[in-house]
C-alpha cells in the first residue's frame, strides 16, 4: 500500500523531471511578458553562477591538494594579490555590473507605468482571510477567487487587504505583490495566450493560507467581451 502511494508520485516526478520546468504554478513555464523576463533572468543567472560555483569549488580542491612549488615569498605575494584582487574584487564587481545592467531595466518594464497607446484594464482585488474578492469597477462585475482577463492586453490589478497581509501571485504571468491593509498596490499582469492560469496567496496569512488559491482565465478579446456581457446580464 505504502509502496503504491510512493510509486505514483515517483513515476510522475521522473516524467515531470524529464519534462523540465512545466507545471501549473511554475515560474519556469511563463505565459506573459513579466514572467518571461523573470524566467530569462533566472536561466542567465543559473548558467553563469553555476560556472562560478564550479570554478570556486574546483580551485579550492586544487589548492588544498596541490604541493606549492617553492617557498619564494615574492612569488607567493604575487599569487595572493592575483587571487584577492581578481577573484575577490573583480569577479563580484563584474558580475554585479552585468546583472544590474539587465536587471534594472527588466524591473522597470514590469511597473504599471502609463501605456504608450491604449488603456490597461483595471481590476480591483481585495484579499480576505481566506479568499480573493474580485471587482471590475467599469462593469460592476463581482467575483470570488477568479479573474477573467483579455489575452494580449495589460491588466492592472489594484490590490487591497481587508484584514492581514496577503500576497497576490500568478507565477506563470508575473511576480507577486503584497496586499497590505491601508494601501493600494498596483500589479500589472498580461497573459500572452488565452488559457487558465493558477494563482495563490504567497504571504503567510493564517491557517487557511495553503488553500487561498484563485484562477486567472485569459480569453481572446472577443470572448472576453462576451463573458462581460454574460456576467452583466440580469444584474441590472
Amino acid at each position: 500500500m505504502m509502496f503504491r502511494r510512493l510509486a505514483a508520485p515517483m513515476l510522475l516526478g521522473t516524467l515531470l523531471g524529464l519534462a523540465g520546468c512545466s507545471g501549473p504554478l511554475s515560474t519556469l513555464d511563463p505565459a506573459g511578458p513579466s514572467a518571461a523576463t523573470a524566467a530569462l533572468l533566472w536561466w542567465g543567472m543559473f548558467a553563469a553562477f553555476s560556472l562560478v560555483w564550479l570554478a570556486v569549488v574546483g580551485l579550492w580542491l586544487y589548492a588544498m591538494f596541490r604541493q606549492p612549488a617553492s617557498d619564494d615569498p615574492a612569488r607567493a605575494r604575487r599569487i595572493e594579490k592575483r587571487w584577492i584582487i581578481g577573484g575577490g574584487v573583480a569577479l563580484p564587481v563584474v558580475s554585479i555590473t552585468v546583472l544590474l545592467a539587465y536587471g534594472i531595466p527588466a524591473g522597470h518594464s514590469m511597473l504599471p507605468l502609463p501605456l504608450d497607446k491604449g488603456e490597461s484594464l483595471e481590476i480591483h482585488v481585495t484579499a480576505h482571510q481566506w479568499y480573493w474578492e474580485v471587482m471590475y469597477p467599469e462593469s460592476g462585475i463581482a467575483l470570488d477567487d477568479e479573474l477573467h482577463i483579455p489575452a494580449g492586453k495589460p491588466v492592472d490589478v489594484h490590490l487591497r487587504s481587508a484584514d492581514v497581509i496577503h500576497s497576490f501571485w500568478v507565477p506563470r504571468l508575473g511576480g507577486k505583490l503584497d496586499a497590505v491593509p491601508g494601501r493600494t498596490n498596483v500589479q500589472r499582469l498580461q497573459a500572452d495566450e488565452p488559457g487558465s492560469y493558477r494563482g495563490q496567496c504567497a504571504e503567510y496569512c493564517g491557517v487557511g493560507h495553503a488553500h487561498m488559491k484563485f484562477t486567472v482565465t485569459a480569453h481572446t478579446p472577443e470572448d472576453f467581451e462576451a463573458w462581460k456581457r454574460q456576467e452583466t446580464q440580469g444584474d441590472d
Binding site: 513579466s34 523576463t37 523573470a38 514590469m110 507577486k176 503567510y204
Partner: peptide, 10 residues
C-alpha cells in the same frame, strides 16, 4: 535582483 525576487520571494 528585484524582478527575479518578485517571482521567488516567499
Amino acid at each position: 535582483l528585484v524582478p527575479f525576487n518578485w517571482q521567488v520571494h516567499d
